[in-house]
Nucleic acid binder design. Structure first.
Lengths: 323, 323
DNA sequence: CGCATTCGATGAACCGGTTCATTGACTCCT
DNA sequence: AGGAGTCAATGAACCGGTTCATCGAATGCG
């Protein structure tokens, strides 16, 4: 039996007799044959692999994104490659090159800095489609984002409406889209209310729970501490609440608190924490779907941007400023 | 220039002149050459891919395991493949076969049911080393587990010491190691105290927050409700606390609560929830390291089992039974 | 009956590396 | 000077599929 013949059978070539197909299938079962995907990949120049590189997948809600994206991709015959960039441009560049060498068919990733020269060069040199996760800086690529700006605007307007004007904000890295747009939304709400935010009450580069702990502690130690705290960085509410507890300040009572992302903690804390939420599962599905379209070769001009809406869930942690 | 020559240069063959090396490197830079990993994989019969298949990576603490494992593997030149089994044996079998076809070099995975015939057959037929994550049922494979039994024993002993004897327990799927060993630890502590646990107060198959919500609600609606609740299933504390809140029962006060795994929520809840904790990051690192040893071909007889210790963090949610 | 056409199976080329036997040049020793 | 030995580069075989031109057999038609 010729190898090419077997290949034709496996690939459902139209001109194959039933008799031959049965003979081949019997032989395959008998010999325990399994195709070698690496050989297929080499021959075809594609791997049916999709890479996902994010800054840190220990962020609880990101797991949901990945889970949903993986499900959609597997359904379509692709396997997911996972890597963590630890938010470092050099690692991002290295990973892109590694993905290229592996003949990965598509990439979805976050970027530590959308303006970084090296990263931008690596991205435009990439032969496979790349989709940005919650980043908006590169218009030629597909992007799936959350509307953080609107979420932050809603949250800030809510606080202003309660009479707060010394509002502190904790954000992550302003080089990246989510923090940048949250800050924009915050400022937008402030200026709409004719209020000028105090620069001393803004803390950026809050990336971990420990960062949030320190930032909160230093904010509350100010001579004129804030009356409201917008913890806009991802997965940092815990650190903030820990600091408040240590200092004996009650959320809601001593200070109003808004979380930039929802969680079990926000929902069940006493008092429950007002939080911004959005559908990360949908983001994952959309990301996978858009990438699949690109990989299928659909000629779509320019990069598409899809923004998932955000919503503010008002809970007990935000209260009117006592007069 | 011969292709074989280029290959020798790239692979640091000892018999290569500096002059040739420079010439090749110059040409590579000039042409933007990059090795094709799929071709390497095909030739070598290995892919430098390690697959990780777990039941659901939307479990917050699992992400930490994956993160650490990925870091160790990448350091060693491997790339991580990720797939979710949704705890279904047929998917586990399908994934094992897909990994084989991809010439994956090693696998780390959870199992929905360690006794499942088909899965066991697929595992023993697997040509690459497989390491079990928090599963202990197959002695021929390497296993990295947490000592849930001891954790549960500590937690139960703690509750018994506070005078509780109507202790309810929420566990996950008893076909899998973690829930099984937690139940063992629970029973061990009970019989050590000469107490027979009430079967009505045991709820198994609690897999999600919603399951925990329902289980808690039904338990607290009993004529003789439990005085203590051991929420031993992973990532289900939220559902349980939600149910208690809905029913107007205060954790700590109305009922003592122990969580089977720690979280921000447990730490920051009011009152803080007594919880069992263990080092998932270390588990991830150990799993990767052990798998690397196997892949390196180290001849190690039989499967190795590594159990990470568990610890009980006593907080305010567990209080003496009022007399 | 003979020629053209159709159909199904075949074998060889190819994808892009790695490896090894081979070759040619050079050194060293007698 | 000549032979042995060393060393660096070469080219071909190979990994396991896919694809395409080719071939033989069977069928159809005049």
């Amino acid at each position: 039996m010729a190898v090419g013949t077997v290949s034709r059978v496996l690939n459902d070539h139209p001109r194959v007799t039933r008799e031959l197909r049965e003979r081949v299938e019997k032989a395959m079962a008998h010999l325990g044959y399994e195709v070698d995907v690496t050989a297929q990949s080499m021959r075809a120049g594609r791997s049916r692999l999709v890479a996902c590189a994010i800054r840190d997948f220990d962020i609880p809600r990101f797991a949901l994104f990945i889970k949903e994206a993986e499900a959609v991709l597997r359904e379509a015959g692709y396997t997911l490659l996972l890597a963590s960039t630890t938010n470092r441009p050099d690692i991002e560049i290295g990973l892109l090159s590694a993905f290229r060498r592996r003949r990965v068919d598509g990439v979805m990733m976050t970027l530590s800095d959308e303006q970084h020269r090296g990263v931008r060069e690596a991205l435009s040199a990439a032969p496979m489609p790349v989709l940005l996760i919650d980043r908006d800086g590169i218009a030629t690529l597909d992007r799936v984002t959350a509307d953080h700006r609107e979420g932050a605007r809603l949250a800030t307007t809510h606080l202003l409406g309660l009479g707060h004007w010394r509002i502190a904000m904790l954000v992550g890295d302003l080089k990246a889209f989510p923090s940048r747009s949250r800050l924009e939304g915050f400022r937008e709400a402030c200026s709409a209310a004719g209020m000028v935010p105090h620069p001393r009450l803004l803390r950026d580069n809050v990336l971990s729970g420990e960062d949030a702990y320190r930032a909160t502690a230093s904010l509350m130690a100010l001579a004129e501490p804030p009356t409201a705290l917008f913890v806009a960085a991802m997965d940092t509410l815990g650190g903030c609440l820990r600091a408040l507890r240590t200092m004996g300040i009650a959320a809601g009572d001593g200070i109003s608190v808004v979380a930039g992302s929802d969680s079990d903690l926000a929902e069940l804390y006493a008092p429950p924490i007002t939080a911004i939420t959005w559908d990360l599962a949908a983001m994952g599905r959309h990301a996978a779907t858009m990438l699949l379209e690109r990989m299928r070769g659909d000629e779509i001009e320019g990069g598409r941007g899809l923004a998932v809406p955000t919503e503010l869930i008002i809970r007990g942690s935000t209260r009117p400023l006592p007069s």
